[in-house]
Write a protein that binds this DNA or RNA. Structure first.
Length: 983
RNA sequence: GGGCGCGUAGCUCAGCGGGAGAGCACCUCCUUGACAUGGAGGGGGUCACAGGUUCGAUCCCUGUCGCGCCCACCA
């Protein structure tokens, strides 16, 4: 018995359990050994995450594909797992420590801290997996993987995969260590990659005049602005060496512009364009860096853009990416004046001054005469102050001495860390890099020659654009949570990159030809003890090596996901069977982060693309189109939606909205509508049950005799074809829309309604055939809908089994595929009934005829075929259109409303009921429409070019249209004539 | 600065060379034994604007206006 009401909250957990009980989603089920493999690797959610709508969409689409292909008989592996999410996880645990007022990460030390993170993972890391289960994801849960493997497992494969990838890339020269500027996050105290930097627009604080309301130019203010440190352009006057600086005399200085005043402490040159006539005479001369006293040269470099600023640009190699390059070209020193914590340090300035100090007898032209005077002693007071505080102070100091020309508010992009939100500092450090350029070449080729295709295709351009301009990928992170880099440092510049500590020792011993021991971290809690140990070891004749403290970027392990999860580096049967995977489903926001890197690593290590298709879907936004974010508080919680309307309704809504496009705006009202759809189907199944429509074993829809039944078989087959084709083309919205329209507007609205007279009528062949067909079509619906609404359909599949034994779970039932069910004749006949009933209903509503009133119907001058159809469907039409009696006549009776149904007249004699004027108006309106149609077609046909150039079938179509419209017109003329005869 | 995308019914969005569609909202009617989480009917759009290509343009091309996103060395 089907319950009276559809209650998803009661059904869904029960069905979930049923699937788990038989391990329905396990890959490699014995009966599918010979089947074609189909594999999707899940974009591993962060262990810190909880299911948001983006996940819901992404996983719904993957699940639709997996369930579809599983029903099509493939051996499906949906590989599930989670990502350790280095920075995010470390932040979560650190925050927790702070909230609980426990010792900080540094206080407790690396080992203890990592233990805490693992403990946290054990406690909370499974949340997202359970949420995926609630969504109905049909992953192979037995194969769940974690990017850092299982804690403490010996010889853990997921760890081995990362080590092997790193070591092999290193030995192939594709990973290297380099000292260059990195994006440094001064809050998290780690380097981050280009992709983790968000450019944020910063605009200066324009001051507004209180009188006029007009913006006041900051120049006019002539004051140091005291607000937003990020949105101003500062023009500095750098005095020329050998001239008496006079702010009112431009020949005594050169003006440079900057948005980062505090970096001037580290300036080592001023660059101008070699062809810039304005500055040509100054090239080779020196300026005296204000406050610092350093003599810095004016150099010619093409980097300088005459159009920008003043055309002269200050060069700070240690704190700007471009300046770094300029500095290398001109062998300029790198003066670091900002610390890892983004605080000012003048120590290097004073140290340099001490080093190069001018002695009274020095020749001022000597190259080492770097300073013309001692640095301003007040600079020392800046030490340790925040960069933005220092900015204000430096500007104030410069202004005092006339070195500021002007300050303008400006709008520019400032890099921020995407996790920390603070302004990124370019910082000079040693970091590990992947030679992405080399790895990108095969990845580019693979998409170019179609071994991997993007859907929609247009994303390939984005992919190419980025891959062609790819930069070295900084993979080292100054964090603790992650894969520690397998590099051990020995004497001087020696680095041993090996799979294990033992291998590193062996390599070092070979090189040094003496015993080698590994020092534990000298940055660890017991610094003194460690240093002591190192010294003792050395004096005892050992060489000491120490492992790199840093860990790898999370995306490094994610890049290996399509093969590491299948067992690589071991040659497992799974790896052989499921790689390359079939399709990757993800949002466009991680094409660079993840898709591109999987392509590179997959091709490098497996020599084959990781997936044949990349399906890129939209981003889910809120009702107003804003990106959902916790800080904005506009996050729609999918779990709340599931509580309210069920996972099926949410999934179905997402699938319906998954059309190509940039974003999906989801409103709960829409989900409610789809929950109503589920209810509709539920009730249709109840109806079938109440009418004893049970599946009949061996029932063949092709053998149906009844037109109505042949018609629904025809419609079912067409729907199945449409849904299948749409899914094959990743048109999820079309697929879901096709089932929805079929269930609601065909099966429920017409088939069941038309079947009622049979089902409630006398027993007989027609009735039993109809019962069987109602059940058959319902079963086909459950199959077609299952990928979208798995819980509801599985439940209905079970409860409608009745006496007919189901072979098993719906989720493992073959997908509908039939031949020979098409029946145009049945389609034409039922189509006529539908049109007739609709036309009568429309008139009844328009004329406000009480629902209880039975109307007689006269079919005037109709064909023998129509007459036969009318006789066959008399009872049905009577019931659906409230027609009491159907008769036939040569012409419509006087005073009747005359309807055109498929070119023939159906008359409703309503003498005394109808308002003659209103009926005339109605007919005239229809007449106008017919005339307009005729005219439009005539205009086309009258055009010789159209007849000459348009394809034949189009012209024939137009002629048919004209004929049809002309027929309509004639009938209306006749009808109007009869109406006229009455009055 | 480079690139991508969008502007279609009140709202959210499909469609994308040959007669304008859906869901929601709105209006009217209906508690007839599957379903009021429902049924029946209905109103509502010079498909942003201007040119062009074409026999024919909401759809293709160019430009304009408006909006959004991504990338880029922040003078």
């Amino acid at each position: 018995m089907i319950e009276k009401t559809y209650q998803p909250a009661e059904i869904e957990p029960r069905i979930s359990a049923a699937w788990e009980r038989v391990q329905a989603f396990r890959a490699g089920r014995p009966e599918r050994r010979a089947a074609t493999p189909y594999c999707i690797v899940i974009p591993p959610p962060n262990i810190t995450g909880s299911l948001h709508l983006g996940h819901a969409l992404d996983n719904t689409l993957q699940d639709v594909l997996c369930r579809f292909e599983r029903m099509r008989g493939k051996d499906v592996l949906w590989q599930v797992g989670t990502d350790h999410a280095g920075i995010a996880t470390q932040m979560v645990v650190e925050r927790q420590l702070m909230e609980r007022q426990e010792p900080s990460r540094r206080e407790m030390g690396r080992e203890k801290f990592l233990e805490r993170v693992w403990a946290w993972k054990a406690e909370s890391g499974g949340t997202i997996i359970n949420q995926l289960k609630r969504l109905g994801a049909s992953c192979d849960w037995s194969r769940e993987r974690f990017t850092m493997g299982e804690r403490g497992a010996p010889d853990e494969q997921m760890v081995r995969a990362v080590l092997k990838a790193f070591v092999e890339l290193y030995k192939a020269g594709l990973i290297y260590k380099d000292k260059r500027l990195v994006n440094w996050d001064p809050k998290l105290l780690t380097a981050i990659s280009d992709l983790e930097v968000q450019q944020v627009e910063c605009r200066g604080s324009f001051k507004w005049s209180s009188e006029s309301g007009e913006p006041l130019d900051a120049v006019a203010l002539g004051k140091v602005l005291d607000r937003d440190p990020n949105g101003h352009l500062y023009y500095f006057r750098y005095p020329l060496e050998g001239k008496a600086f006079d702010p009112s005399n431009p020949s005594t200085f050169i003006t440079v512009a900057t948005t980062r005043p505090e970096t001037m402490l580290g300036d080592v040159a001023v660059a101008v364009h070699p062809d810039d006539e304005r500055y040509k005479p100054l090239v080779g001369k020196n300026v005296i860096l204000p406050l610092v006293g350093r003599k810095i040269p004016i150099i010619a470099d093409e980097y300088s853009d005459p159009e920008k600023g003043t055309g002269a640009v200050k060069i700070t190699p240690a704190h700007d990416f471009n300046d770094f390059e300029v500095g290398k070209r001109h062998s300029l020193p790198q003066v670091i004046v900002i610390t890892t914590e983004a605080r000012i340090t003048t120590v290097p300035i004073f140290a340099a001054y001490e080093h190069y100090k001018i002695k009274p007898d020095d020749d001022p032209v000597k190259p080492n005469a770097t300073f013309s005077s001692a640095p301003d002693a007040t600079l020392k007071s800046l030490d340790g102050s925040d960069r933005f505080v220092a900015r204000k102070k430096i500007v104030a100091l410069l202004e005092e001495c006339g070195f500021i020309d002007k300050i303008e508010p400006t709008v520019h992009m400032v890099p921020h860390g995407d996790r920390s939100g603070v302004v990124i500092e370019p910082y000079l450090t040693d970091q590990w890099y992947v030679d992405a350029k080399t790895l990108a070449a095969p990845a580019l080729a693979a998409v170019n020659d179609g071994r991997t295709t993007f859907v929609p295709r247009s994303w390939e351009k984005t992919y190419f654009e980025w891959m062609e301009n790819i930069q070295p990928w900084c993979i080292s992170r100054q964090l603790w949570w992650g894969h520690q880099i397998p590099a051990w440092y020995g004497k001087e510049e020696d680095i041993f990159v090996e799979l294990s500590e033992a291998d590193a020792i062996a390599a070092a011993e070979k090189k040094y030809n003496k015993k080698v021991v590994v020092a534990s971290s000298i940055f660890g809690s017991d610094v003194v003890g460690n240093v002591q140990a190192v010294l003792e070891a050395k004096s005892a004749g050992y060489e000491v090596i120490a492992r790199d403290e840093d860990v790898l970027d999370t995306w490094f392990s994610s890049a290996l996901w399509p093969f590491s999860t299948l067992g690589w580096p071991d040659e497992t049967p799974e790896l052989k069977r499921y790689y390359p995977t079939s399709v990757l489903v993800t949002g466009f926001d991680i094409i660079f982060f993840w898709v591109a890197r999987m392509m590179m690593m997959g091709l490098h290590f497996m020599k084959e693309v990781p997936f044949h298709t990349v399906y890129i879907h939209a981003l889910v936004r809120d009702e107003r189109g804003a990106k959902m974010s916790k800080s904005k508080g506009n996050v729609v919680d999918p779990l709340g939606i599931i509580d309210d309307y069920g996972a099926d309704a949410l999934r179905f809504t997402l699938a319906l909205m998954a059309a190509q496009g940039r974003d999906i705006r989801l409103s709960p009202a829409r989900v409610e509508g789809e929950r109503n759809f589920a209810t509709k189907l539920w009730n249709a199944c109840r109806f079938a049950e109440m009418n004893a429509c049970a599946g009949v074993a061996g029932f063949n829809p092709k053998s149906a005799k009844e037109v109505l039944n042949r018609w629904i078989a025809h419609e079912t087959a067409r729907t199945a074809r449409d849904v299948t084709a749409a899914l094959e083309a990743y048109r999820f919205n079309d697929a879901a829309g096709a089932v929805r329209a079929f269930v609601w507007n065909v099966y429920c609205d017409w088939y069941l309604e038309l079947a009622k007279p049979v089902l409630t009528g006398p027993d007989g062949a027609a009735k039993s055939e109809t019962r069987a067909m109602v059940a058959w079509a319902r079963d086909e619906i459950l199959k077609l809908l299952h990928p979208f609404m798995p819980f509801l359909t599985e439940e209905l599949w079970a409860v409608t089994a009745g006496a007919s034994a189901r072979a098993g779970l719906l989720t493992l039932t073959p997908w509908p595929a039939y031949a020979g069910l098409d029946d145009p004749a049945a389609e034409a006949e039922i189509g006529w009934v539908v049109d007739l009933v609709s036309a009568i209903r429309s008139i009844r509503a328009e004329m406000n005829i009480a629902p209880a009133t039975q109307l007689p119907l006269v079919l005037a001058g109709v064909s023998a075929q129509t007459k036969a159809r009318a006789e066959r469907w008399m009872e049905f039409i009577g019931r659906l259109a409230r027609v009491g009696d159907i008769s036939f006549a040569q012409r419509a009776p006087d005073g009747a409303v005359q309807l055109l149904v498929r070119g023939e007249v159906a008359a409703l004699p309503l003498k005394g009921v109808i308002d003659l004027a209103a009926e005339r108006a109605r007919l005239e309106k229809e007449m106008a429409k017919a005339m307009a149609d005729i005219q439009r077609v005539d205009a086309k046909l009258a055009n010789p070019d159209f007849v000459k150039r348009a394809p034949e079938e189009i012209i024939d179509g137009e002629r048919e249209k004209r004929e049809e419209a002309e027929g309509r017109r004639q009938k209306i003329v006749e009808a109007l004539g009869r109406l006229g005869a009455m009055s």
